[in-house]
Design a protein around this nucleic acid. Sequence first.
DNA 1: CGCATCCCCTGCCTGC
DNA 2: TGCAGGCAGGGGATGC
Length: 310
Amino acid sequence: MPELPEVEIVRRGLEPVLAGQTFVRVELKRPDLRFPLPKGFARRLVGQRVMSLGRRAKYLLARLSGGDVLIMHLGMTGRFTVAHPLPTHRITSVADTNRSARGGGVRAGEFAYEAGADQKHDHVVFRMSNGAVITYNDPRRFGFMLLVPEPRLEAHPLFKGLGAEPLGNELTGAYLALRAAGRRSDIKTFLMDQRIVAGLGNIYVCEALFRAGLSPGRKASSLAGKGGTATERAGRLVHAIRAVLGDAIAAGGSTLRDYRRADGSLGEFQHSFSVYSRAGMPCLRRGCRGIVRRAIHGARSTFFCPVCQR
DNA sequence: CGCATCCCCTGCCTGC
DNA sequence: TGCAGGCAGGGGATGC
């Protein structure tokens, strides 16, 4: 679920409680995530201080005082929840599911559940030196955590082949044109490939293609043609990618089912989808009479307006 | 290398 | 009410 905007929002939520703090205790309730947690995971974390919390593509990167980087990926359903030691600061993602505990209704600032009280699918719990309790919950367990020595991060198989960071300077029309040359896949699959643009997922690729007016079934190589039209298309696409990611971040990400910010609140960008999950509904572009269609590209659902997107 | 297919896992929704 | 089937924000492994 989490694509770049969601991961970035989680990063911003965790940073204030993680950065500068030391791991006091690490509990592994269920170490078999997408990959098994590394041997000695908890022991290697305890005592280390988090120097910074960054993001690359859809990965969260906690740089640790001991020289390792803690890599965290949320998969499809991963969620971090922060609970603070002070009742008035307690924040949780499950306030709406646990109201009966207090006789109905949880008011702002109240406890919604005890820190450490097991929720289903809680897998990892970090207890930090500031008292913060950070719980990783992931029903499908497609997420994972790794520890890699910082000098080896860039060469790590997960990172070595990553493409341009979409909000960075590397992503330009010229870059897309270069990478698209000779590709026979469709443009939707091309953009989903993390080796090309790192951090886009199904939602934002659909939305970006809509904003750029490009059909998802169009050949990726049509971004690389020699004429001015290909260059213009690639530039328009880069602009659309940046705009949709920026809008999504500003809205706190998109909540379909599982995604929550670290403070438990929902994202809001799902209310601004133009095409994603809107099959059969009218295109929202003013004056367009198209009906949003669903198609399959690279085994994933694609949503698009056949009138606007060519 | 590029590309397609299948798989990992749980939960939710739909239709019968 | 139950049950089968399809689908879901990600990405790795395999085979051609």
